[in-house]
Design a binder for these strands. Structure first.
Length: 919
RNA sequence: GCCGGGAUGGCGGAACGGAAGACGCGGCGGACUCAAAAUCCGCUGGGCGCAAGCCCGUGUGGGUUCGAAUCCCACUCCCGGUACCA
């Protein structure tokens, strides 16, 4: 009898042994092809979530597979350790953020090790470690010297709750994406990265194997639009440039609108309008983005000033309105109410003229007085002087003849130029927070700025700080007070960087986390870069993934990879275009959701008070006898809020109030019961502590083993999609590994060996190699595991019958273990060594697929009549069209159907299918 | 509104334009057991039929094709992104 599969003993043992033997150490070796596999680094929140396992263990399996395929694989891990939760812990629980973070890292490292992943821990990088953030600061200074990092004034998103500013990418629906608290717009001086410098290049995904949705989201976020810049003038003579995508409609502009914060507003406002304009501007400043959006109707006020339309010299009024944003284009628009819905609504509300300049192809000429909405379709230009008669299509930019004609006219007359606008704004990186990378700048007494000299880096976060809710750095005199390069008193910058700055370059620090002559060692970088495969959540599409692309491009342009390129050339590797993009291949995993759970069935006796049943007694009862008396209901508890239950009775929900003195009986829970112990129905939703539907990976590892958890997560879902957790489903995976354990330890005794059964098993083995290999390549772990389960079924069958040769059995077992090794590294290692091999299974080459052995000799021929399957026949795999046709026509079952009419056509697809068309 | 993605048994999910439902969960029946659990064996999309077998079936409606879950058109619902972007 074989020994039992004891994962509790076996898994830690192999983890220790691998560590001791250092089998996962990744060393530069120019004689081997490299593969840099990377999975998004976690925030050290304190506990590893099942989502981390779902993201990381399949990525680990793929990295292992690449290694067995002969690649030298780097698969590092680290922590994105700066960020707000640490400060919140400090305020709430009086623990220093550093202490809290480092304790969490310690704990999570242990949990990560329990995965049995091939992380090379010598390459661990932790963003809050001074040895890391020294180089974040160094990069900031390089960006500063190049003008990519700058201090500027802009309308920024200020979160009163967090007492800090946020990047555009962190604000969703006018609310902070983390806390859901509203954000207000404030004009503030802050640090920015000039990501817009790369807007055009960031739109180019050439050569990147990235998911289409991620590319689309980035394109939308960047929001390129083609048009023209047209220079209007105020009556006072000030230039008032506007950006428009429809320069062809310039002749229909009947007014202008400036953003309330626009610098020219003061100049154009006439004394009689001053009070109203100021009031409107103040109101705009006070309202949050959210309030502005909720207000459906457009508002605005007339400034009293006028501008001259450069195309026809017409005098048009200048308004201000908050539907025009200061941060897009020039913060001013020309309004063409006849052909822009926003302008139309505004014009109608305030009685401004509407002049159509496009005549639709069919129907009556447009009349500004009677139109009910803006016309945005195709037609012919009218009322437009030189453009009259030009065709207007629905195409954008120069593709549209009328727009092309308008741009040419503007250029010719010197009042405008072709222009491209982007929705993307510069990346606001200042945060008025403590737990982030300090911005290494200081302000001299004269107000000018200087970077902290490189030799003084890093600017270290002081530890003796107090947390009051405001930025503690600003209130720390020893930190703030410093001296400039000349020794004169200076003030230190107290803002820290957005944590997305840290994760924008961490993939480079992994290469050499201890290197102290630069952010990374060119000798390592030349071999490992770029990242070949990157995996992580799609929620980072417009945040991290856009930022890190920008970072790499900026670093490239600043020459930070020059030395690396030199080393590459020395080794005969062409560095051309290798530093344009950080990650060549990207894949997103989905999310593991909480499990659906039925609620308790309760038997409630009480009194009706309106629609509510006030309970006298509540009994949890599995045998749901139907209720027959008044004031008695039986049903499943769907929801519970405090002491109020929603019980489903037939198809409706009954509200049950359970007063303090009601009797609650739950047979399954001994002792006195109360209403909070009643289980309510749980729907499939994201896991969260408050919903009580989180699954704890540590407990799963304890109960089933890391290999089972890994394999189950790979088997249960389409990885890119995710889905609900199934606590019974994991048992099937454990049974699979139990069977593998049995197959790997049982002595096989051939009994009635048949050549046919032997050949069949060998065929299945080689088909499995092909299938698993293709699936690993394509991130289709679920079908890879399914293939191995089938192979398990074949082996169990062989074990029962003893019908295969000993050699075929050995080959099959060995192959099963090798193919399963990336998914279940501990068990396969144990069984492999048990078979007598001295070297780790994880150092073995991936099995070779033999097409000769995998080839089927007999295949099933499906015979259809008019597309419906009428018979299945066995034919040789090499049967030709004639042979399969003959076989099909001679089938007894098929013949009966042929009698219903004449054979009109026979479609043969040998060797699998024949379709006979009868009519 | 706009841009993506999706909808297949009771459930998770498989299916180069060619056998729908691989693999697993659950369910049902049987073996073992005093019994239960575990384990093992068999069945398991729906309907009709004693059976051979037949009919229906991949969100809905149409189309292309010898043949459609797969391609095309229109629509419904769900999920994600984005939203005065001039």
């Amino acid at each position: 009898m074989a020994e039992r599969y004891d994962h509790r003993e076996l898994e830690p043992r192999w983890q220790r042994r691998w560590e001791e033997e250092g089998i996962y150490r990744a060393e530069v070796d120019w004689s081997k092809p490299k593969h840099y596999a990377l999975t998004m680094l976690p925030y050290p929140s304190g506990d590893l979530h099942i989502g981390h396992w779902y993201a990381m263990t399949p990525s680990d399996a793929r990295a292992r597979w690449m290694r067995m395929k002969g690649y030298n694989v780097l698969f590092p891990m680290g922590f994105d350790a700066f960020g707000l939760p640490a400060e919140q812990a400090a305020v709430q629980r009086n623990i220093h953020p550093a202490k809290w973070t480092w304790a969490n890292i310690e704990r999570m490292r242990r949990q990560l090790r329990s995965m049995g992943a091939m992380f090379d821990w010598r390459r661990e990088a932790i963003t809050c470690d001074p040895s890391f953030y020294r180089w974040t600061q160094w990069l900031f200074e390089k960006f500063y010297e190049a003008g990519i990092a700058y201090r500027g004034e802009a309308l920024v998103n200020w979160s009163p709750t967090l007492q800090t500013v946020l990047a555009n990418e962190q604000v969703i629906d006018g609310k902070d994406e983390r806390t859901g608290q509203p954000v207000v717009q404030k004009l503030m001086e802050q640090w920015f990265f000039e990501i817009t410098r790369y807007a055009e290049e960031l739109l180019d995904f050439e050569g990147l194997d990235w998911p289409e949705p991620v590319k689309a989201m980035q394109r939308n976020w960047i929001g390129r639009s083609e048009g023209a810049e047209v220079v209007f003038r105020t009556e006072g003579g000030d230039e008032l440039p506007v950006f428009t995508t429809r320069p062809d409609t310039l002749w229909g502009a009947t007014f202008m609108v400036l953003a309330p914060e626009h610098p020219l507003v003061d100049g154009v406002t006439t004394p009689d309008r001053r009070a109203e304009v100021d009031a409107y501007r103040e109101q705009t400043a006070r309202r949050s983005e959210l309030e502005r959006m909720e207000e459906g109707e457009k508002t605005g006020v007339f400034t009293g000033g006028y501008a001259i339309n450069p195309v026809n010299g017409e005098r048009i009024p200048i308004w201000i309105a908050d539907y025009v944003l200061l941060s897009y284009g020039s913060g001013a628009i020309m309004a063409v109410p006849a052909h822009d819905q926003r302008d139309f609504e505004f014009a109608r509300k305030y009685g401004l003229p509407i002049v159509p300049v496009i005549q639709p192809d069919d129907g009556e000429p447009l009349d500004g007085a009677t139109m009910t909405e803006a016309y945005v379709g195709p037609g012919v230009m009218v009322n437009s002087g030189p453009l009259d008669g030009t065709r207007c299509t629905e195409a954008k930019g120069r593709e549209n003849p009328s727009i092309a004609a308008a741009i040419d006219w503007l250029v010719e007359h010197g009042v405008g130029r072709e222009a491209v606008g982007y929705r993307l704004r510069d990346w606001l990186i200042s945060r008025q927070r403590y737990w982030g990378c300090p911005i290494p700048m200081r302000y001299r007494r004269d107000g000018t700025i200087e970077p902290v000299p490189e030799a003084e880096l890093p600017v270290v976060l002081p530890e003796d700080v107090e947390f009051t809710g405001r930025n503690p750095l600003a209130e720390h005199p020893e930190f703030v007070q410093t001296v400039d390069a000349e020794g004169r008193p200076a003030r230190r910058e107290t803002d820290t960087m957005d944590t997305f700055v840290d994760s924008s370059w961490y993939q480079y620090r992994y290469l050499s986390p201890d290197y102290d002559e630069g952010p990374f060692d060119p000798e390592e970088a030349a071999y490992w870069l770029p990242v070949d495969t990157y995996t992580g959540g799609a929620e980072h599409a417009t945040l991290h993934l856009l930022y890190t692309r920008f970072f790499t491009k900026a670093m490239r342009d600043l020459g930070i990879f020059d030395e690396t390129a030199e080393v590459m050339r020395r080794h005969g590797r062409d560095p051309d275009s290798l530093f344009d993009e950080p990650m060549l291949q990207l894949r997103n995993q989905g999310q593991v959701l909480g499990e659906e759970r039925p609620g308790d069935v309760v038997h409630v006796v009480g009194r009706w008070r309106g629609e509510t049943l006030v309970a006298e007694s509540v009994r949890v009862d599995e045998h749901a006898d139907p209720a027959d008396a008044d004031g008695v209901i039986v049903g499943e508890v769907m929801r519970r809020v405090e002491n109020v239950l929603q019980v489903r009775v037939d198809d409706r929900l009954v509200t049950v109030e359970v007063p303090e003195d009601a009797v609650v009986e739950i047979p399954g829970i001994p002792g006195d019961n109360d209403v909070t112990q009643i289980r309510h129905h749980l729907e499939v939703q994201r896991m969260s502590k408050s919903r009580g539907n989180v699954v704890n990976p540590d407990e799963l590892v304890e109960a089933y083993g890391a290999d089972t958890v890994r394999t189950y997560l790979m088997f249960a879902y389409d990885w890119e999609k995710g889905g609900p957790w199934d606590s019974r489903g994991i048992l099937g995976t454990r049974r699979f590994l139990d069977d593998v354990h049995r197959i790997g330890t049982e002595r096989y005794v051939p009994k009635d060996v048949s050549e046919e059964a032997t050949a069949r098993l060998r065929r299945r083995v080689h088909q499995a190699i092909r299938k698993v290999d293709a699936d690993m390549e394509a991130f289709k772990w679920n079908t890879a595991v399914a293939t191995l389960m089938s192979l398990r079924n074949d082996l169990l069958e062989a074990l029962r019958s003893g019908s295969v040769s000993a050699d075929a059995w050995d080959e099959a077992v060995k192959t099963l273990l090798l193919l399963l090794a990336p998914m279940a590294p501990h068990l396969t290692e144990e069984l492999w060594r048990g078979l007598g091999f001295d070297e780790s299974i994880h150092l073995q080459p991936w099995p070779e697929f033999d097409p000769e052995v995998a080839r089927e000799e007999l295949v099933t021929l499906v015979v259809q009549v008019n597309g419906k399957v009428r018979d299945r026949l066995e034919v040789p795999a090499d049967a030709d069209a004639e042979a399969v046709e003959a076989a099909a026509l001679s089938s007894e079952r098929v013949r009966r159907w042929l009698e219903t009419g004449e054979v009109r056509r026979i479609v043969a697809r040998p060797p699998n299918l024949v379709n006979i068309v009868v009519g």
